[in-house]
């Protein structure tokens, strides 16, 4: 099952996604035996502030989690994940930034292809895949063309994932608003 979870900064979207992933993991363990709960962190500790943010996020997760760094190459995650695993990708804004900044892929249609392949492989392995992202497109449109282009590409990725998702949830002040799929 594919989940898309988004919201504003400090809206509680990561916490919501982590709780949901842990819930899905426990359910999968009961049903299918041993599976993994994998946290795919797209952010790297590039400076002290980022390191502190990562420490805070890590400390908040219990030992049932395996954390792997996936700055941009989602194939790493495909290889790390086994059948029935629960994968949480946090978050897409940083993933796209890493893709573009490191010039791994900048074409919108290719970014969608990469995401499509990733989702397909997760479906084949019967994994639960949760994406976390940020609603950054409701600000004043930027006159900086790089920022406008980034917003365009991020939205293209968001719309694609939402179209593929079984559940799409917007988190406001920690509370889920269910846009797609049933509540719960």
């Amino acid at each position: 099952m594919i989940w898309f979870i988004s919201g504003g900064a400090r809206s509680g979207k990561s916490t919501y996604a982590e709780n949901k992933a842990a819930e899905l993991y426990e359910e999968a363990e009961r049903k299918n035996g041993a599976v993994n709960l994998i946290y795919a962190a797209t952010a790297r500790a590039s400076d002290e502030e980022m390191a502190e943010r990562i420490r805070r996020h890590r400390a908040g997760r219990s030992e049932i989690w395996q954390t792997i760094e996936v700055p941009w190459d989602l194939r790493q995650l495909v290889e790390a994940g086994g059948k029935g695993d629960v994968l949480l990708v946090d978050c897409l804004t940083v993933w796209l930034n890493n893709m573009l900044f490191n010039k791994k892929e900048t074409r919108t249609s290719k970014l969608i292809d990469i995401m499509s392949d990733f989702i397909q492989s997760a479906k084949e392995k019967e994994q639960q895949l949760l994406f976390v992202s940020n609603d950054v497109n409701e600000d004043l449109p930027s006159s900086n063309r790089y920022i406008a282009d980034y917003t365009y590409k991020l939205e293209a990725v968001h719309r694609f994932i939402v179209s593929q998702a079984d559940r799409a949830v917007q988190v406001n002040a920690g509370l889920p608003l269910h846009w797609k799929g049933e509540a719960g």
Binding site: D135, N137, E138, P141, A148, T151, Y152, E155, A156, R159
Partner: peptide, 8 residues
């Protein structure tokens, strides 16, 4: 109404 490139 909706954000930029949201599919309006």
């Amino acid at each position: 109404t909706g954000g930029a490139f949201s599919g309006k």
